[in-house]
């Protein structure tokens, strides 16, 4: 079970699928230029940032995972781009000026590409709401699209500040399930989203750093107001998806269980996370209205 802070199960799977690196490449390459004309993104999360910011024609390929509707909130938009599988050979044939990817995703490919002279920029998985505007601006600077990035980052900050300003004393408790009884705790993007939307995260309060199992018995004891399951789990059966449906959780009323966050909305630190914040803020307003307190 991964327990690094901010490691996202979905991305771990993505990493697993794409880390089949090829070592057969042995040639030198181009160096980067100031405003890269050809950019490749090898990672689901950098895909989202790059798609939001790149000029037409600038982004020449994105990872195949972005087309997977179970993982990617932008799967439809992703069909407009060619896809790659994160292999060094693919990068070499495309000869991009810039490669953007995640820090953990392609442990073998990234050093290889760097050795071959490609310019590779890595983005950390460990994100919270606070770091996202910075990530947007960083991607903007890399792509030479500073203005667009600034606008996007500003609007993100404004929207977030607006939602946060509407929080009040009523702070219902929440538990966010990653999968199979594993909850998202302190330091995760989900934790910061819950806080911004006005929830208390029981996993963080129980001292969970990153991701860790949260025993069913403790849920029964602590009775969270909401339990957030992963959206899209119902598409393909798994035992983990059944954990929130355990009769012990059905036995007491008052807890809402469901995929309250839009599909893939908080699996990457990108502009799309605001959708998760909005959805949860609306839910919080519904179950614990601030009323005349405001």
């Amino acid at each position: 079970m991964p327990s690094k802070p901010g490691w996202r199960g979905g991305l771990l799977k993505a990493l697993y699928r794409t880390s089949i690196a090829s070592f057969t490449l042995a040639l030198s390459c181009l160096s980067a230029i100031a405003e890269p004309a050809r950019v490749m993104s090898l990672n689901l999360c950098t895909d989202q940032l790059a798609m939001a910011l790149a000029a037409p024609g600038q982004l020449i390929s994105i990872s195949f995972l972005s087309r997977d509707p179970m993982l990617s909130p932008l799967s439809e938009k992703a069909t407009a781009y060619p896809i790659n599988h994160g292999r060094a050979e693919e990068v070499f044939l495309e000869r991009p000026n810039l490669v953007v990817t995640g820090t953990y995703s392609l442990q073998n490919t990234t050093p290889l590409l760097k050795r071959l002279g490609f310019r590779v920029e890595e983005f950390s998985f460990v994100q919270t709401l606070d770091t996202i505007p910075g990530e947007i601006r960083r991607m903007g600077a890399l792509l030479g699209r500073e203005e667009r990035a600034e606008a996007l980052a500003r609007s993100f900050e404004t929207e977030l500040a607006d939602i946060e300003s509407r929080r009040c004393e009523a702070r219902p408790t929440a538990l966010a399930y990653e999968q199979a009884g594993v909850a998202l705790g302190r330091g995760t993007l989900a934790d910061s989203v819950l806080a911004a939307a006005g929830f208390r995260n029981l996993a963080s309060e129980a001292g969970i750093e990153g991701m860790a199992p949260f025993p069913l018995e403790l849920i029964v004891e602590q009775k969270p107001d909401i339990i957030i399951t992963r959206a899209g789990e119902e598409d393909a059966p798994s035992l983990g998806a059944r954990v929130p449906h355990h009769p012990a959780l059905r036995a007491f009323s008052g807890t809402r269980i469901g995929p309250f966050v839009p599909r893939g909305a908080w699996s990457c630190g990108g502009p799309f996370v605001i959708q998760a914040v909005k959805a949860l803020a609306a839910l919080r307003e519904e179950i614990a209205p601030c009323g005349e307190a405001r």
């Binding site: 079970m1 199960g9 979905g10 799977k13 993505a14 697993y16 179970m70 993982l71 999968q179 199979a180 992963r230 789990e233 598409d235 393909a236 059966p237 798994s238 035992l239 983990g240 998806a241």
Partner: peptide, 9 residues
């Protein structure tokens, strides 16, 4: 399995 978490099981 299309479910990314199935392999953990």
């Amino acid at each position: 399995s299309p479910n990314p978490f199935a392999s953990y099981e």
